[in-house]
Design a protein around this nucleic acid. Structure first.
Lengths: 232, 232
DNA sequence: GTCGGTAGTTGAACACGTTCAAGAAGGGCG
DNA sequence: CGCCCTTCTTGAACGTGTTCAACTACCGAC
């Protein structure tokens, strides 16, 4: 329906499209209010009022309140990528790179803990376009998976040839698991999530290394076959 | 606030409490409409009308529309337990018992695939009392964990002594993972979920067996320490 | 410069979940 | 029977997300 008209404009830079200012204004206002009041407590009327536009105008740019969440995803993904860059430049060991990138992801999300939690409620619904597994999210998801590809590419780790192509997506999946834990993490400063990362990374590291052993080849293959079967 | 008054009644059988009939009527009507129309498409007004009561009356027994979901959980858990009984009576091998119980769980849920999916949206929200990790759900959760305890107790499997006390909860967690996959499973008849179970159970079986090996002791301990740390 | 069409904007209106003050029904006790 | 207290029931009213017919602002074409 009527969504993201800037992108359906015939040619031309979307940034200079007429409504682009309004679009950004509404988005930024929404993000601010989400942070200040939380998601549920922020009404569409409040967003519109604070942005100085009519309610219907917000719906011209964003199909629903939930669609504003996707905007949050996109922003977070970009911020994660940026925050991960120093780690990718600095570290060479697979474990250090992975831990760094995972920590960077949580770093970026930390200011939003509390209200981001409610987001993942919507994200968990399979029918929702906001699901990280959905087609609509494939853009940010691919970007995220690629980030974990870089974790691997730039590292000194030697990975089983069969495992390698699957690994970035598996690492992304592990990252989703970390986020799921983080969302439920009530420990002050989400310390437990940090412990989870620091505890799980060495295990993943060891597991990846073990995958090359001849003795474990059958298991590795069995796991990979299962994963291949389960992918859509 | 005003919830489940039958349980706050001073002594006496809740089943004979005055409003218990109405309570069940509303619950059953809601479940039927959920099945017929889906969760979002079923309005509280429709539930009330079909049950022949006022809207407010439904709220007297169930604090919110979401609370009706918890009713669905409870029913499903009981049905799962019943469906698992034959397997527990018949099978002795750990793998067969685990696979049977997991399949039984999906069997019970299958008729509700589609609308049950939207339920888990709410379940994923950490702040929601409907979260499988929440205190409010601890009853059904404990029952479910105990079911996996029986999978273990009645089996011939030899399990590492340190792992054993943690294992039922871990198996329950794996079951949650299966359900998460099932919810997103769009394959006809959710065949893929069945494949997931049949593929993952042998791996879990092997893993549990390996946990006793002296060589892997450090890893086992490392994993268990991490899990213990992460639990609340 | 005016005309026409698209992009952008408006706010009242709708359906929904939820609340609550008011009342009805039941039952124990004098 | 009359009284009181708890349990149960009612439906109008509120705030919310969302829709949509109407309107305005802009821009290229002639």
């Amino acid at each position: 329906m009527t969504e993201q008209p800037a992108q359906t404009t015939t040619a031309g830079d979307p940034a200079t499209a007429r409504g682009e200012q309004t679009r950004q204004l509404i988005r930024d206002t929404a993000m601010r209010l989400f942070r200040e009041r939380g998601y549920a407590q922020t009404t569409m009327r409040a967003i519109a009022q604070e942005a100085g536009v009519a309610v219907g105008n917000a719906y011209y740019y964003f199909g629903s309140k939930d669609h504003l969440i996707q905007e949050f995803y996109a922003q977070s993904q970009v911020a994660h990528r940026a925050a991960a860059q120093p780690v990718l430049d600095r570290e060479e060991a697979f474990g250090a790179r992975l831990a760094g990138v995972l920590h960077a992801g949580i770093d970026v999300l930390t200011p939003s803990h509390g209200f981001a939690a409610t987001f993942f409620k919507t994200a968990a619904e399979p029918t929702s376009p906001l699901s990280p597994f959905s087609a609509e999210s494939s853009g940010p998801r691919q970007a995220a998976i690629e980030l974990f590809g870089e974790v691997l590419t730039g590292s000194t780790a030697k990975v089983d040839a069969e495992l390698r192509p699957q690994l970035p997506e598996l690492l992304w999946l592990a990252y989703m698991g970390v986020i799921l834990y983080w969302v439920h993490d009530r420990s002050p400063g989400q310390t437990k999530t940090r412990q989870l990362i620091d505890g799980a990374v060495p295990l993943i590291d060891r597991l990846v290394a073990l995958s090359r052993l001849r003795v474990l080849r059958p298991v590795t293959r069995q796991v990979l076959d299962l994963i291949r079967t389960l992918r859509h």
